[in-house]
Design a protein around this nucleic acid. Structure first.
Lengths: 122, 122
DNA sequence: TCGAATCGACTACGCCTGTAATCGAAATCG
DNA sequence: CGATTTCGATTACAGGCGTAGTCGATTCGA
């Protein structure tokens, strides 16, 4: 099952998560906004992602249209869980505490989170 | 500044964060509890960590004693921030919301977080 | 129709990572 | 003292990753 998606590949995934299906050229032109890559590089990343079954492609005339097979939400969930498992014994609370200590959450942030939690309880 | 610590190297860091200074052999015997590595492997990881300046060593007789140079807290903070920046636009709230949606938060977790937030407000 | 552009496939190549083995110097054991 | 163990240092090597170039086929433009 799902191999790990690398940092560079992730930039490609983000593009496809935002809009799909896209051709390799379309992906490249969108990805170039954030990374200075050649078309060839983007093509390599696309084919590696196909191999990993993170994205799929189907022929449209003589080129491929690429689409994500992995949902952003589930990928993000997996990565979040990895982090929390590795560093916080699988518990979210210590993460929140940790972040709270590090960066100061604004009073508004706190109120917002509290509201969210209250909603979640019902 | 600080190069990235790899997954395997992290297992070594965890040992040293728990107890230090330690000799290579000591680290190896502790790390073997979780990963099935040879002493040689642990030594390689130690020397790579020294190169990366994630740990330091000083001679004790004819061997080295190794100690972390990077604090666990600041490393974890960095990794957490990376994740939150990459996936949640740098804001904590969406992470909490996300985990809530994935149902990775128990009712107890929520109560605990609420208590924590209340403390933080004062 | 013929050259130019484009496509996907394949190849390249250096660095990092995981996982060790080996080597020479030193120390310890007998 | 000589043999064995133990250290750190050096070397190894395959696979993944970042970053691309090249090639053969196709299609498009003139």
């Amino acid at each position: 099952m799902s191999e790990r998606i690398s940092e560079a590949e992730l930039a490609v995934m983000e593009v496809l998560w935002e809009e799909s299906p896209l051709t390799a050229t379309d992906v490249a032109s969108r990805v170039v906004a954030s990374r200075d890559w050649s078309l060839a590089t983007v093509k390599t990343l696309l084919s590696r992602l196909v191999t990993k079954e993170a994205i799929g492609h189907h022929l449209d005339g003589r080129r491929f249209l690429y689409s994500p097979l992995v949902e952003r939400d589930s990928y993000v969930a997996g990565e979040s869980k990895r982090l929390i498992d590795r560093f916080f014994g699988g518990k979210l609370m210590p993460l929140v505490a940790h972040l709270a200590e590090q960066e100061e959450l604004s009073a508004d942030d706190i109120t917002e989170i509290e509201r969210l939690l209250r909603e979640m309880k019902s």
